[in-house]
């Protein structure tokens, strides 16, 4: 199963680059959805078929791959926004930064005192690279929706790390964590609708009245 795991992880990294480089919001949401769906397969390929991994995978697939993307699509359909215009840093530079940070993650992961050598060696660097990609999206984009996608990608990276430790997390806790994520994005969707109504844009640059 290790080759499948590695293929999945490579796909996750490629999706990071795609999300960093695209300007279309819908494509960005779809990328995050696909990434979430791929991650949902990882517990199965790494820990084998078991009741725990099966339910966890199914839940992750449902929440990360289906529910959250639907929520976000609903949000952009209502506000009629299609593209991320004028990001803080352009697409090509962010993509280049993403590549650089991914390379750094691989170098850094080499030096980490990893306890269990039996795990797929790509996992930790992929987790780090995905978290960095999430941070880049969060900080360089101005549309509220892209920031949420960045948050999702960041969560995906943390989920990757969590797969290493799925035994430390009892099933109830895993379920609770995913549910929190879902409800969190739901509430963000509501606030986005309020932003859209009040400011008639989802550009967070307009959200700058509060300062010293």
């Amino acid at each position: 199963m290790d080759t499948v795991t590695d293929a999945l992880l490579l796909a996750v990294i490629l999706i990071n680059f795609y999300a960093l480089g695209t300007s279309r919001l819908l494509a960005c949401i779809k990328a995050a959805a696909l990434q979430g769906a791929l991650l949902a397969l990882l517990p199965l390929t790494m820990h084998g078929l078991a009741w725990h991994t099966l339910v966890l995978g199914a839940e992750a697939l449902l929440f990360k791959g289906v529910c959250i993307p639907l929520l976000l699509r609903h949000a952009i359909r209502e506000t009629r926004i299609r593209r991320e215009l004028e990001p803080l840093i352009g697409y090509v530079p962010t993509q280049a930064l993403g590549v650089l940070l991914t390379a750094c993650s691989f170098v850094f992961a080499e030096r980490l005192p990893l306890a269990a050598a039996q795990h797929a060696f790509l996992l930790v660097p992929t987790a780090l690279a995905t978290m960095f990609a999430g941070f880049l999206l969060l900080t360089t984009r101005r549309k509220a929706i892209t920031q949420v996608v960045g948050y999702l990608v960041l969560e995906n990276g943390i989920f990757l790390f969590g797969v290493l430790l799925s035994r430390a997390m009892p099933f109830m806790v895993e379920a609770g964590v995913l549910l929190d994520l879902l409800v969190g994005v739901f509430v963000m969707g509501i606030v986005m609708r309020q932003i859209g109504r009040e400011f008639s844009t989802l550009n967070t640059r307009r959200l700058s009245a509060l300062k010293e």
Binding site: M188, V191, I195, L207, L210
Partner: peptide, 10 residues
């Protein structure tokens, strides 16, 4: 308040 909520949430 909406601006504050967005910052808080994110």
């Amino acid at each position: 308040s909406i601006e504050a909520t967005w910052k808080y949430l994110l």
